[in-house]
Amino acid sequence: MKKECIEFRNVSFRYSEEGPWVLKNVSFRIPADEGVAIIGHNGSGKSTIAKLINGLLFADEGEVVVLGTPVTEETIWEVRKKVGMVFQNPDNQFVGTTVRDDVAFGLENRGVDRSQMITAIDNSLRAVGMIDYMLHEPHRLSGGQKQRVAIASVLAISPQIIILDEATAMLDPKGRKEIMHTVNEVKDQQGLSLLTITHDLNEITQADRVIVMSKGEVWLEATPREVFAREKELQEIGLDIPFVAKLANELGKVDVPISQQPLNHEELLEELWTYHSNK
């Protein structure tokens, strides 16, 4: 049985005593070394989940457990040593005058030895393809480069869990694809748990499992293929599936059999080639 790395136990939350419930009795488990995406329209509660995991907020009801530790005001610093978060706007995470200084910040706060710090900075920047920008000023970088540095800063502290909270929302499609490819490569190489929080269903194709949120509740837990097959229901809760999945669904309606829901263009072409070869 896989060990849970994140667990929500009947969690409810609202931002004020008189305000509406943002999360309502939410329960799920994320095993260690698993990549999970949480998706939902704006206001569905998905970003609140990220803040509860990292102790930026605390549940009004229920319990959030991270790597066996309940998240409370007494345990937040212990939890934050194990969890790294990358937010939507990387400029909000920069504190150094150079890329190297910025990546070093979290290490300095933890009192890491200088020789270990140099190694950690080099390794994390190399992992995201930014080693040649070490002495650049962060604010002079492109959006995609800034986000890579933000990810490097998180990797440098050796977290066991990485949370991407709408981390690619400000990037173009090419930049989004590159960042997600980089993060998934690092996840596999270092055996990290990855939690991606997004409203863009193009980003969930590499996830092991998807949690769909709607109106503060868990609407569905499924694989990306199973999620894409429910196009009409997703549209009803304010979400839309990628073009490849749409095309596959339409082909199925005109008697072009698709044996499994494709996640990308390559899989769709393979399905069409198989269909053509069997005719």
Rank of each mutant, 00 (worst) to 15 (best):
K2D: 12
K2R: 13
E4Y: 11
E4P: 15
C5N: 00
I6V: 15
F8K: 00
S12Y: 10
F13S: 06
Y15S: 05
Y15D: 06
E17I: 08
E18S: 15
F28R: 05
I30E: 07
I30V: 14
I39W: 05
G40E: 03
N42I: 07
G43V: 01
G43F: 05
S44R: 04
K46L: 06
S47A: 11
T48Q: 10
T48F: 09
I49K: 03
K51L: 14
G55A: 11
G55F: 11
D60V: 05
E61K: 15
V66P: 08
G68A: 13
P70W: 07
E73H: 12
E74F: 02
E74D: 14
T75G: 06
E78F: 09
V83L: 14
V83P: 09
G84Y: 01
M85D: 07
M85Y: 08
N89R: 12
P90V: 10
D91F: 12
N92K: 13
F94K: 04
V95Y: 06
T97A: 12
T98K: 03
V99M: 04
D102F: 10
D102W: 05
D102N: 07
V103T: 01
A104Q: 02
A104N: 00
L107K: 00
R110H: 00
G111R: 05
M117G: 01
M117K: 06
A120I: 01
I121G: 04
N123I: 02
R126Q: 12
M130N: 02
D132H: 14
Y133E: 09
M134W: 01
L135F: 13
R140W: 04
R140D: 12
G143A: 03
G144F: 02
V149R: 02
V149W: 04
V149F: 04
V149K: 06
A150M: 07
A150T: 08
I151D: 00
A152W: 03
A152D: 03
S153K: 00
S153C: 04
S153F: 05
V154T: 13
A156H: 07
I157T: 14
I163K: 08
E166Y: 05
E166H: 07
M170S: 14
D172C: 09
P173M: 01
K174F: 10
K177P: 01
I179P: 04
E185Y: 12
D188V: 11
G191I: 01
H199Y: 13
H199P: 08
H199V: 10
N202W: 07
D208R: 09
R209P: 07
R209S: 06
V210Y: 10
V212N: 02
V212I: 11
E217F: 10
V218T: 05
W219P: 07
A222M: 01
T223H: 09
T223S: 15
R225Y: 07
R230V: 02
R230D: 08
E233Y: 02
E233G: 05
Q235S: 11
I237E: 07
G238I: 08
L239H: 07
A248C: 09
E250T: 11
L251W: 12
G252T: 02
K253L: 12
V254W: 03
V254L: 12
D255P: 01
V256N: 08
Q261F: 00
P262M: 13
N264F: 11
H265S: 13
E267V: 12
E267K: 09
L268K: 03
E270F: 05
L272T: 11
W273Q: 15
T274N: 14
H276Y: 15
H276Q: 15
N278Y: 04
K279A: 08
